[in-house]
Nucleic acid binder design. Structure first.
Lengths: 329, 329
DNA sequence: CTGTTAGCGCTTTCAC
DNA sequence: GTGAAAGCGCTAACAG
């Protein structure tokens, strides 16, 4: 089998606990013996066994991420960032694409230090709390009171957007997004849209609230086309519920040879770098991806150290004005 | 701390080694005591500690998947399938989105039983073999001679496609795909296209080989539009290099009000279920996703058991005729 | 400074 | 059938 600490000890002519110390770079060992042991270890091709180490030290240096829905651009970008940041603190990130419960179970079995859950909310929202001896952090569901959660304030973001457009003099503003009651995350946005419009003295008529079947490009495209083709009722400004919907809208705008922002202003939810790289740099609202990643990482680090953390962190969105919004003529 | 086998033993009034046996469903324990122990364990919320278990049994019941490029629909579908299949054999699948080397390192640290590598081939193809005490399985790069590899025979798939179209009487066949020399996987397809065309007495002119910037929908769409708009030179049949490119092509076809298959025949690489669910069910070539998943799973299972496996498995593609291909009028 | 001694939580002989 | 004992590879007191 593979070479252990004892083999190294025998070869180096010391006790195995000295080897352990030397490998841990403990100050309780002379530089000389330390060097010798390190040499022998390398020569023998010694590889530390993390399982054994963790068994006693209770530390795996590993974070588990529950990621049941492998799609969605925004999420993969987020995870990539978190992964990178955690690496700097010498943590490894491991993902599971299993259902939330069984993923958490798996991570419990291998004793990761903390678990980040991107819940896909499949089915109900009232659910039994998963059993986990390991600290959990949720992203995106502040309804959960049970576990610490990092969340973006979606409502506030949409308010910001409405505000911006109204101040630019827009009267006819349409929201395109997933207006189903299924997903509370999307609901927040819709509610905020209606509320802010009303509070600014604007009535939201049916045709100003467009429901897409989901959040992807295609439904964005077809919904947008419908909205824009009806010239008599064409809005002067559109708020899109996500990056992908915005891409769909842009396609429709292109096909109809409309000019942004002179014919139509566009503002999108999702504050991600890609927003600036579209045909027209799009004004956006939302919490910057990096801010989210930062907070999540920080919380995970605290949890891994078994420190208590505040239960819900709701991140403040920002408005980034690019060239897709202008005064209403 | 979390509840251990000893806690359960005390509570159930048996020795802890009996508990161990009961949990492992050993025949050395009476059904009755077994049931009792299982109940107590559940009530106490016992979670087995895989680290401790592996320390003695040398088995983690975990497969690591190296997945450096988190995008690509085909891959996520594949991984989902593999995950499900492995679950049936009571293995847990864990993913890492780190670079190949550091992902393999991480999996070595937590002692998974086998590692599946979806190499992103970033940079060179000549690279040093990663150090790993754990058996590796590669997917998609038969150039690698060092490690066992499961691969789809892409060239043969494209040959099948060309053959099919030629036998339907098509003269002007165009291939749309990623024709860069960067990715040997794509290169295989292009080569096979040219070779098969030639062997059937057709010359491949420049305009019959369309290079997209990558494999996604957008580049597929714009490339396709270019090809189709030039009426004098419009092909009677198109072979698409991937599912996403096909989606792009379909969009272009739609916009130009062409009919499939009367105006144009379409055949696509990638044998996945989605192919049948497009606007027009698309004739496709490739290895069925499930076949790939099956083989990979089988190989991983063997590797986990430390069994030797054949070095390269090249899976045979199939032609599935749907309604997108017809005789050339 | 170095070695000895206990375990971490579990599986697996081997007695009873 | 069940329990006692040893040990997986390692860390962390504790003595010397």
């Amino acid at each position: 089998m593979s070479v252990t600490i004892k083999d190294v000890a025998k070869e180096a002519g010391v006790s195995f606990s000295t080897v352990s110390k030397a490998l841990r770079n403990s100050p309780l060992v002379t530089e000389k013996t330390k060097r010798k042991i390190l040499n022998v270890a390398k020569e023998m091709g010694y590889q530390p066994n993390n399982l054994a180490r963790s068994l006693v030290s209770k530390k795996m240096w590993t974070i588990g991420v529950v990621w049941p829905s492998v799609e969605r651009v925004t999420l993969s970008a987020l995870i990539t960032q978190i992964n990178t940041k955690l690496e700097e603190y010498s943590y490894t990130t491991l993902l599971s694409i299993n259902k939330v419960d069984s993923a958490i179970e798996a991570f419990n079995r291998i004793h990761v230090d903390a678990i980040l859950v991107f819940d896909d909310l499949e089915g109900t929202f009232i659910r039994t709390a998963p059993i986990s001896n390991i600290p959990l952090l949720y992203y995106g569901i502040s309804d959960h009171q049970i576990y610490p959660t990092v969340d973006a304030n979606r409502g506030k973001a949409i308010s910001l957007a409405v505000d911006h457009l109204v101040h630019l003099g827009h009267e006819h503003i349409t929201y395109i997004g997933d207006v189903s009651t299924k997903d509370p995350l999307q609901e927040q946005k819709v509610e905020a849209f209606i509320k802010t419009m009303n509070s600014l003295g604007k009535t939201v008529e049916d045709h100003m609230l467009i429901r897409t079947s989901d959040m992807d490009l295609y439904s964005g495209y077809s919904s947008a086309k419908e909205v824009l083709q009806n010239e008599s009722r064409r809005p002067t400004a559109v708020i899109c519920g996500s990056y992908d919907i915005t891409r769909g809208l842009l396609r429709a705008v292109n096909e109809l040879h409309l000019k942004i922002p002179s014919d139509i202003s566009i503002i999108s939810y999702d504050h991600i770098p890609q927003m600036a790289e579209l045909d027209v740099p799009i004004t956006a609202v939302g919490v910057p991806l990096e801010t989210i990643a930062d907070h999540i990482t920080k919380q995970l680090l605290l949890l891994s150290e078994k420190k208590e953390i505040s239960n819900v962190v709701s991140l403040d969105p920002e408005l980034i004005i690019r060239t897709s919004t202008a005064n209403n003529r």
